[in-house]
Every structure is written in C-alpha cells, then in structure tokens.
Design a protein around this nucleic acid. Sequence first.
DNA 1: GTGATTTAATTTGCCTCACGAAATAAATCG
DNA 2: CGATTTATTTCGTGAGGCAAATTAAATCAC
Lengths: 399, 399
Amino acid sequence: MKTADPELMRAINRLSVLDTIRRHGPISRVEISERTELSTTTVSAITASLLDDGLILTRHEGDIRNEAVRGRPRVMLEVNPDAARVVGAKIAASRMVFVVTNFRGDVLSTLTLPIRIDRQPIAVIADLVEDGVRRCVVDAGLSLEDVDTVCLGLPGVIEHRTGHVRSSPIFRETNIDFAAEMSARLSTPTIVESDAHAITLAHHWFGKARELEDMVLISLEQTLGLGVLHGNRLFRGAGGLSHNLGDLVLGMGAQGIVRLSSQAGESAILGEKQTDGRFAEAVRLGRGMTHVQALIQADDDRLIAAAVRAGEAVGITIANIVTLFAPPRVILVGSSLALGEPFLNSLRDAYALAVPPSLKGVSELVFDDSTDDFWAQGAAAVALYELYESPWSTTGPAL
Amino acid sequence: MKTADPELMRAINRLSVLDTIRRHGPISRVEISERTELSTTTVSAITASLLDDGLILTRHEGDIRNEAVRGRPRVMLEVNPDAARVVGAKIAASRMVFVVTNFRGDVLSTLTLPIRIDRQPIAVIADLVEDGVRRCVVDAGLSLEDVDTVCLGLPGVIEHRTGHVRSSPIFRETNIDFAAEMSARLSTPTIVESDAHAITLAHHWFGKARELEDMVLISLEQTLGLGVLHGNRLFRGAGGLSHNLGDLVLGMGAQGIVRLSSQAGESAILGEKQTDGRFAEAVRLGRGMTHVQALIQADDDRLIAAAVRAGEAVGITIANIVTLFAPPRVILVGSSLALGEPFLNSLRDAYALAVPPSLKGVSELVFDDSTDDFWAQGAAAVALYELYESPWSTTGPAL
DNA sequence: GTGATTTAATTTGCCTCACGAAATAAATCG
DNA sequence: CGATTTATTTCGTGAGGCAAATTAAATCAC
C-alpha cells in the first residue's frame, strides 16, 4: 500500500478536478465543487494552480443556465487544448494509423499507412513507425519537440509498466523492449500499450462508455483482445499484462486444443486461400458492411459457415467474460464486425444461450464499428492519461 | 474518485501500519517505519492511537536480533488478540462449519454441523445457521454481544456490497437478502461473502499466498469458484459480484452448451447413482486421499474416466484464467482434490497443454487440501478485514 | 442611476496530518 | 559511572482541506 502524505492527497484531488473539467466541458468552480465533493476553497486553490501551469483556461461566456440569473456570473473553466500534444498510433499487421492530438484529445492530424508489416524484422517495423510518427507530426504543423508523449497501441501481450512486448502477431521475435527502442529513436517518451486497452480508454473518454466506470471491451481483429475498465481505470492484470483472448481455449477437438483464435481470428475466418481475396480486402478496409453482406450472400456457403462458427465462438467467450466480470456493458469492436448479420446473429444467439441465467440482463452488448482513427485516438488518450496523472508541477515554483 | 482529505490520509496510513503489525508478528516501530516508508514520527503517533484504542499491545521481550546489541531495546508491538471477536462460517450443501476467532484470526472454537441443507427453505437454513453461530460462540465461552461481526461464506453468486445472494446452489430461491436476514436474527452485523473469496483471503492471511499481492484461487467443490487477489485486495468484479466458474462454457456439445459445472462439479463426477456412495462419502469428508485413491483403483473405470475428464476441464479453465489474469500463483482448493492422481495428473497435463506459450512459466500451480475450518477462518478474516479497514476511532476522543 | 439582493469566488483562521531535527529514554560497553 | 548506541518522543514547520467571513460582479427594484 502506498504511503499517504499531503502531496499524494493533493495529487489525487488535482487529478479529480482536472478530470472533471475534461469530462464536463466548460464548467464553473462551484459545479466542480459539487461533482468532486471538494470544498470551493480547495477547488479554487487547485484550479488556480492548474491555471498557473497553463493546463486549463477560463472562459467568461457560455454559462448555459444564463438568462436572467442573478448573482455574480460563473467563470467557466476548460482544458487548455494547447497544454500538450501527443501522438497515438494503432499498429496492425496490415496497416498503421497515426494521430496527433492536443491536450483535450482533439485530433490535429491523421495518417494512415496501408503497409503490411506482418513478420518484418523489428528494425524495419521500427523504421516505419518512426517515419509515420514524424510525418504525422509534420502534418499537424508541429515538430517532434512539441510532442510530449507517444503511445503505440499494438496487438498481443504487452507489459505496460515496462514497455515490453512479450509476444505480438506483428513481431517475429518475442520479448522486445519496444518502448525503449522507440523512445530512443524519437527522443520522446514513448509508451507501448495493447491496442485493446487503447480503444477501451477511447470509449471511456470519447465513445460508448463515457458514463460508465466499469466496462469490458472485446476487440475482434486479427488478434482477439480484451480491455477491462474497473473503477474508471484500466485493469491490467497482475503484472500489468494485457489480455490476449485468442489464447483462450474453447475445448478439446479432434487434434488437441482448440483455441479461440483458430475459430474467430481474422485469418481463421477468411482462410486466405479459400476465398478470392475481395472479401478479405473489404474486411481489411473496415468499410462497407453492406458490401460485405452482398459478398456473403453471393459467396459460397463455406464463408458464411465460417462466420457463423466464429460468431458462436465469440458469443460463448463473451458469456464467459461476463461470468467473470459481470460488467454493465460489453462493447465489441474490430474488423470482424464487418462480417455482418450471419456473424452477429450467431454471436448474439450463442451469447444468449451461454450467459448464465443468474447474470441474464446484467450486461448489455454494444457493437461499435469505429474507424482505425478511433483506436489511434485511444492510444493518444493513454498518453494523455499519463500526463494528467503525473504530478507535474504539483510542487511547482511558487508564483 | 474518492475525495482525499487528511482523515482519509490517516485512515490509509493507519491501516497500513495495522496490517504491517498483523503480518509481521511482533514488530518494533522502527521496523514498521522501514516497511511502510512512513517516518518514525508518524508511526509513533499512529501506534499510540492504536494502543489507545486497544487494538495492539506492547511486548518488551522478544527482540530477535538481541544478544548484545547496544542501544535502547526495541519495543515490540503486536495485534491485541482480544480487541475483537468475529464468527466465520462456511455454509456448504452438506455441512456447515463455524469458527470463532479473535482479532488476530486465531481460532477460539470450531463447530461442524454435518447437515444437508441443500434446497431447504430459507427459513430453515437461516435457523440452522443462527443456531450454529450461537452454539459456536457459546463453545468459545462468549456471548453474542462479544462478537463484533459475523461473516458467512457460501457458494454461488453473491453481491458482497449489499449482502444479496443472487443465486446459490444451497438456496431454492434467488436474490435473497441473506445479510439483512441474519443480521436481524443475530442482532450482530453480518456479512455475506462468496466462500471462494473467503478462502482466498485465508490464503493471503494465513496460507500459501502470504507473501503475494496478486494471486488467483480456484475452488473445486460442489460449485466451482474463483477468487482473485489484486494488489493485496479481493477483486470483486464490477458490481461486487463473486465469480461462479461453474457457469463458464467450455464449448458446444451434442445437446447444446457444455458448462464447466457439468464436467467438473462434484455431482458431475460422482454421478450419485453410478457409484456406491462410499467414494462420495470420502470426498465429502475431505479426508484420506489415500483412501480415495484405493477406492479409485478398486473401482470401475467409469469413475476414473470421470475424474480424468474433470481434470481436463479444470486444467483448461485454469489456463484460461491464467490467460486473463496472469497471476504469479494459482492455488487450487476444494473437495475435488481428493480425487487423487488421475484427476490431478490430467489437470496438470491439460493445463500445460492449454496455457499459452507466451505465458508459460508465469503462473505456478499450488494444490492445497485444507480442512473446512480453514474456509471458515477465511470468512472470519473477511470480517476482520472490514474491522481493520473501518476508520473506527480515527477521530476518537482525545486522550 | 443607485442601492438592495443574489450568487460566485477568494481570503482568513483553524484544524489535522506528515515530517525532519532535536531531545529524551534505555540499554551496553569500557 | 560515564560514554556510546539505538529507539522513541517532543517540538516546530509546512502543506492540505474546510467553514465562515469577505469581496466581486452581476440583476432587480424603484
């Protein structure tokens, strides 16, 4: 247990105030005081320090409850967009997406590199990532010195605390200290995080879990990932490890262990050689569920059967996750959603069947087909969160 | 996020100190200061208050590092055993075990009632439990007024925060407010907790996870339960729900969903009518693995096959849990361990096969065949933890 | 317009907490 | 018996939070 001292106290309350300002837009001090249950005195002191550090701004217009309200008008406070810049990235097997955001999480520029980096040597991947980051930063009219943190979201088992990639489908090698590698190349602090965690935070900050403090997200991409939000923070397993759902075992088949990845991974469904590649292309682009549906209707039954089988496997897995975590909401994201109705229906049916009766109705399934930008934005949010959380100038110079 | 004030600060540090004293036996103030990283001044203040409240005691002997050390001798501090009494209980389908412990968790009296309460009406069960608590308290030479808290550990899905039993194999009804019912009957604060959580805490306090802050426990009884220790505290899912592993789905069989409970629950293995009951008896008593082994050797192959199949299912499940939580240790407890080698070997094999290669070696499997007393003691520990954690006289009367 | 009223934010005074430095306590050593 | 050593307590300071009082900046009433 961490030892508590006044500084920690301040850090906690500071974060609480800053987070309240971030979440509830322009907001007055009184309202912050109500929401955080801190006294107005304390809120004033903290906001003064935040203003002093340039993390927030005042705005004198915009009191919504205006129109003939007596009394001194409230001064609205909001996060200073320009207090920091971060880069977020989603590194996937067949593409990389970068975003630059400001301190508020607004996207300043986006860059998509549709390159298959799958199984390239580390050095090549690192080169490409470095290039992408630099170009995206230039696109935003900035220089790397203006960037405070970079966060790379990638699939696989990642140790967030140390930045080690224990294993990832995009790396041939295992146990790479990718954070150190990229920090050195970019000479900017670089965080490595599971892509699933990144989009989990994205949904908490900007998406479909804004109002929840507990939630589970399942990402269905080439790799199957899991993100758990617990008490407004990412649950990162014991050792800070990310979760790799694809490794889950569904049972014993004829030739041994059957893992989820063999049933529901992108490659498992597409089967590469079995179909003509048009379908794979559509899924890869993440576009046009209608297009895919048309393909499915026209295509052979094998593909539909694969989609149904995958949906079943995922549905059961979700039920199992719900059994363990009982979250109020489960968000499903990822390219596999583009498989359309056959997949989704079979998923829903399997879930309904597999969820324990005692937990029926506890968790709500939500499907989300955000673009890759959103994942990258989530990575940016991970970086921002670390900035928010860092004491920064808690013990700054006196004014 | 909870708002931080000086009182919270003190509460945190107080708990930290008290917990350090509990865990590290008689211990001096200097050593507490080292372990908690609090200043000796603060430790002195806090211990003074703890002494004042009668929660700890001083002892002037017992400095281990003795033998001609110069300087003022250390005064050892230890938890005052008599600062509180709690009752812990394990309520299972075929028996109830009660313990009364002191503030240190030492068992003062034990009572086992080998009654099958399975599917009795609530009122009957409540009667029996009430009776058991009262008798055990009398056995300890106490009266119920001397008891600060009662904690009942039972199988099923339990909402710890509210004391609601959402579903339990020992209740016909669902959604019982059992905590309120028993609190009223005993006129003593009563906590209801999952039995798996109870024994998880037991292992953290007294057993095979004393030195760990993260750990996973799997209980193999009539019901299959899960306890997760995360950062020295029980991880209770989003809504404070317990986990019911038996509801996990292993796959689709011929006639629909195959749940773990149908493969590895006690009744699934014993099959009640298939065997002659001697085996079931032995397992139920939790005694004599050798006896059981002898029975298995003498018995028909069907039983062994069932044990092997169960072991396989559990092994896979453990691998899946490890995939999700990556704990440094997994402790296995419960009556099913008495199945002996066929079960354990198949479990180990299935686990080794099913655990993802990237996590190989991360988690260590530990088997534990404690008696039911230990479970009840864990329930007592849950009660004690709440006492430890409660601010109590943080803002007590000035001396 | 000018003062009363109302609401927001800041200032003042007080309390708790943690901590470092100095003082005190209780041993052993020579 | 005094010097030395180590543990614990006392004292003084600074940081933090909060309630109450005060100041600020509007609207309203006439």
